[in-house]
Amino acid sequence: MLEINNVRKTFNARTVNERVALNDITLRLEDRDFVTVIGGNGAGKSTLLNAVAGVWPVESGSIVLDGTDITSLPEHKRAALLGRVFQDPMMGTAASMQIEENLALAARRGQKRTLRPGITREERARYRDMLAELGLGLEDRMTAKVGLLSGGQRQALTLLMATLKKPKLLLLDEHTAALDPRTAAKVLELSERIIQENKLMTLMVTHNMKDAIRYGNRLIMMNEGRVILDISGEEKKKLTIELLMNAFARASGETFVNDRMLLG
């Protein structure tokens, strides 16, 4: 279970550019929840994920994951509980290292790194099988540098790395936004498959309303650092883009105009 209690984060505090990115936000996720997060630019979606991941400290409130208060844990320690995929395909992998080395790094998330070998023969065999399942032909290129892969391949690899060691919570931060529509659809399907197979609690930020409606068992909409809409279960299954836009207008008192969200 994830509990986000009254978390507040202000960027550029006490300057003219001051912006409250998370406005005492409260959110609770159950263990099997696959939550899609939508909202306009600057609504605080990515900030929410970064707050959970510990990219910087929050000003107030608490974040409790699986019974552990992680509010003041440094980023690398929280990583033991989290799997993350970023918007930028460059960000989730080490370009100058081999595919198998990247996987081996991920396999040791949350473990003490010792002077034992960084990768073993048994691991290689296991990774080969896992990569073969992706169906991208990466199993034959295990010693290739990740920098040679396409954006979609890198995101698929990052997804594998994020879930290689089963996380308590998977954070997907617009992880298909930088991909072309066909590749994005493939990576999304892969995401869902991995989430279902591993029964992962997931927070997925997306700019695409259709994806937000189609995937997951619950949808939240954010605006000005708060959750303004939270739809789950049967109600979510019946959602349409139109219903969502009307709901947004009611909840926020403004119309939801954002081409990227409509067309995406």
């Binding site: 991941a53 440094p74 980023e75 690398h76 320690k77 990583a79 033991a80 989290l82 993350r84 970023f86 460059m90 960000m91 989730g92 992998t93 080490a94 370009a95 100058s96 290292m97 080395e101 081996a104 790094l105 991920a106 040791r108 998330r109 949350g110 473990q111 790194r113 010792t114 002077l115 034992r116 070998p117 960084g118 990768i119 790395m161």
Partner: peptide, 28 residues
């Protein structure tokens, strides 16, 4: 030998992509 160990790999990952290294639990 050292840069082939778990610790050595964590150093290489830190140099290659610090954000990724932290996300994978490495104390950069």
């Amino acid at each position: 030998w050292f840069f082939g160990t778990e610790t050595g790999c964590s150093l290489r990952a830190t140099g290659a992509n610090e954000a990724m290294a932290r996300a994978q639990g490495i104390n950069t």
